[in-house]
Simulated assay, not measured.
Amino acid sequence: MKPTIITSVITFILVLWSFYAFSAAGVITQLPFVRTIVVVIAGIYLLRGVAGFYFMNNPLGRTPEFWIWSSSICLVIALVHILGLKQVWSTFA
C-alpha cells in the first residue's frame, strides 16, 4: 500500500505542476501566483537534478544509473521551464 500512496502523491504533484506550466504558457486560464510558483517548480527540478549527481556516490538504495538518468531528466525539465519562463516573463500580470 505504501508504494501506491507515495506514487499517487507524486502523480498529484506533477499534475498540479503541469497545470501551472500550461497556465504560464497561456494554454489554460491563468492560475494564481503563476509566476512565483513556476519559478519555484523550475528551482525544485534544478535542485533535484544537481543533487542527484551527489547521491551517485551515496546511492541511498538506488543504482548510480538511476541517479544519472533521473537527474538528467530533471535537469532537462528544469531547462525547459526556465526557457519557457524567459519567453513569457513579461506577459505575467
Results as ranks from 00 to 15, higher is better:
G26A: 00
A42L: 00
G61K: 13
I73S: 04
V34D: 03
Q87L: 15
L14N: 03
P59H: 09
L47G: 04
A42I: 07
A21M: 15
I41Q: 05
I10P: 04
A25K: 10
V9R: 00
L14T: 14
G43I: 04
F19C: 07
L47E: 00
Y20C: 08
F12D: 12
S70L: 10
G43L: 02
I44V: 15
R62A: 02
W69D: 02
V34N: 05
A42E: 02
S8C: 10
F22T: 05
S90D: 15
Y45S: 06
V27Q: 03
I10F: 10
L60V: 02
L46V: 05
L60H: 15
V34L: 04
A51Q: 14
L31K: 07
N58Y: 13
N57T: 10
A51W: 07
F12A: 15
C74Y: 00
F19A: 13
G61V: 01
Y54A: 06
G43R: 03
V38W: 02
A42G: 08
M56A: 06
L47I: 12
V40T: 05
L75E: 00
L16Q: 11
L46K: 01
S18V: 09
S71R: 02
S23F: 11
I10M: 12
F12Y: 09
Q87V: 13
S72A: 13
P32W: 06
S72N: 07
S90F: 02
L83Y: 03
P59A: 11
A21W: 10
T4M: 13
G84V: 11
V9A: 06
V40N: 12
T91Y: 10
Y54K: 09
S8L: 13
P59C: 04
I5S: 10
L60I: 09
V80C: 01
A93D: 14
W89I: 11
F12C: 12
P64V: 08
Y45Q: 06
V38C: 08
F19N: 06
L83V: 10
A51L: 14
F19K: 12
E65S: 14
T29I: 08
T4D: 08
V88P: 05
R48W: 00
V38R: 04
F33E: 00
I13L: 13
G84E: 10
S90N: 15
L14F: 08
L31N: 05
E65M: 15
H81K: 00
Q87M: 08
A78C: 03
I6T: 12
L85Y: 01
K2Q: 08
G26V: 02
Q30D: 10
V88L: 06
G61A: 08
A78P: 00
Y54F: 11
K86Q: 08
W89Q: 09
K86N: 11
I82E: 04
T7M: 15
L46Q: 00
